Computed example of a mutant assay.
Amino acid sequence: MTLHSIPSNEVPEGAVSGFVTTADGRQIRFARWRPASGCRGTVALFPGRAEFIEKYFEVVRDLLARGFAVATLDWRGQGGSQRLLRNPRKGHVRRFSDYQLDLEAFGRQVLLADCPAPHFALAHSMGGAILLEAIIDGRRWFDRVVLSGPLLDIALVPYPALARTLAATLSAIGFARAFVPGGGGTLVNTLPFATNLVTSDPERYARSAAVVEAHPELGLGAPTIGWVHQTYLAMAALRSPEVMREIRQPLLMIAAGDERVVSNAAIQHMASRLIAGAYVTVPAARHEILMERDIFRAQFWAAFDAFIPGSSPF
């Protein structure tokens, strides 16, 4: 078993976990589950930056209770997957498109090989951007896709044009693997609740922190300059009008009303131009809606249940 339990966050029963190897030789951790009886298909769960499989155990249980099998992974450089730099706390990627190698290995070795159809996807933040890239590249593995706060632009940077230029310049002169200015190795999930921008739920925030405190090898610090540069390039490509017109995948984008991490304006702009897309806002929720208070999570799941065929609440 490659998954970690703590008393407040136990591994859901029936887990199968391990590693798949990507085309460039990286080891990517995965986990999958099947419901106790019957099966309406599989939901592939794709986390955001600095997240890990254990953080989503509650979400896995929510999906199993709806009759879905679940499959998920840790992206390269985070969680229990292979780290990319000597300092394992640096959030780095050589090229944003490298995440597609993780998705390809996971899709072919786990999702298509062992998970019952039909296949749906639920992706958060960075996971949403990765999945959108895959859709644009022609991967039609999923009948429908739900994106929670997809990373189409960054809201927490006060001077985005300057940040883009600085990240590109510093990457070009050899600083791609350095932490972003002001960033360091402090694990994201252990920062004080009062300063967090992602959830208003202290109990769920404390639960994620407890997992990282018990298993610090799962945590991640600030991103590198190279990660920021590559992410800006990927976001700009996703937002181009030509790219948006190519998306035919049925998509539901769910945005947080009190979003402070990604740009809701960018999400709404894309959603309004999709041929088969829909857009929902959960008022007053913060970025990590699935880690939010029950009143916000209930609105998310109501939208999910209405969009995904065969989904039904408990």
Score class of each variant (00 low, 15 high):
S5I: 06
N9L: 05
A15V: 07
D24H: 13
G25C: 02
A36I: 09
L45D: 06
G48Q: 01
E58P: 07
G67P: 04
G67R: 00
T72I: 04
L85R: 03
R89M: 11
V93M: 02
V93H: 01
R95G: 02
F96Y: 15
L101M: 10
A113H: 06
H119W: 15
A121W: 08
M126L: 12
E133C: 05
I135G: 02
G138R: 11
R139C: 00
V146N: 01
L151N: 07
Y159V: 15
Y159F: 11
R164S: 14
L166E: 08
A168Y: 09
F175Q: 12
P181C: 00
G183I: 00
G184D: 12
G185L: 02
T186Q: 09
V188T: 00
N189A: 15
T190I: 12
A194H: 01
N196D: 13
L197F: 06
A206N: 03
E217S: 12
G219S: 06
A236F: 01
A237M: 10
Q249S: 06
Q249H: 09
N264I: 15
A266G: 05
Q268S: 10
H269E: 12
R273G: 02
L274W: 04
T281H: 05
P283K: 07
L290V: 14
M291I: 04
E292K: 08
A298S: 14
W301Y: 15
F304K: 00
S311C: 13
